[in-house]
Amino acid sequence: MKTAINQKLLIIRGQKKRNKVKLGSFLFILPAVALNLIFFIYPFLQTLRMSFYEWPLMGEKTYLGLSNFTQIFLDGQFWTSFWFTAKYTLMVTPLIFIIAFSLALLINKRLPGVAFFRAVYFAPVVISMVSSALVWLWIYNDLYGVLNYYLLNLGIVNDPILWMGHASTSLPAISFMITWKMAGFTMIILLAGLQSIPTETYEAASIDGASTLKKILYITIPMLKPSIGLALIVSVIGSVLGFEQFLIMTGGGPSNTTTTIVHYIYNQSFKYFHFGYGSAMTVILLIVLVVLSYIQLRVLRNPADQ
């Protein structure tokens, strides 16, 4: 017991020594720290402060204590937006992941022309969200949209589908568009992970007579855990912060049934000029994101770190 403590102390002392040596290297991370302080920490503290005030565009600010927060819990639209955003996240995250994972497995092979397909699958990622939303809005249109044109001509439907007319159709339609747009990004993260798995592992498994499915289940997925974790966190954060696609494609309608949380924060802050209320919702959203990311990190921890 005693020796163990001594050993630990030794280790700590050793670390201290090393830290001293590397003090000069802090200079190198100073720019990053400074940027973080200016563009994240300071704005965050300011947002936190604003969330306790009634904060109009110009003129007197009134201190409200916690009443912005209590107001939020009674705000029906906040909860509508909250659950809609949750539904969207639950729909789009697995969709992106499954497609991205399949694509990553496909293009991980060293085949001629595979670089071309990597580029093709990744291409939608580099298109701006606004442009993609506008293009898909046109595709989904009921009067002159290309999708309804084919559905009608192939006799699949008798009347054009109003894709953006109701949340029950616009949510899957937009989720599909986002999958098309974002799967390439998740694919690249997973591909990087796949390529870091040593080929010897697979060779050893082959000698032991493992099938392809078994290799995926018992080698690929466990060794890919850190990449999967990263991919899911990025994807979940992206979905929870979903905004432009809904702003452009449904305008949050009909009757605010497709207004996401960020869209609602934007409306309250920049349309109705309730900056304090908007800040309070931003703080709540941040807490939700931190909790979600923490849970995912715990669940998908690299087995080697445990």
Binding site: F39, P43, S128, F185, G238, L241, G242, E244, T282
Partner: peptide
């Protein structure tokens, strides 16, 4: 997109 969205949130926060 995710980076863009983060950027957007960033901008909103920075604006605030």
């Amino acid at each position: 997109m995710f980076n863009k969205k983060l950027g957007l949130i960033f901008l909103i926060v920075a604006f605030l």
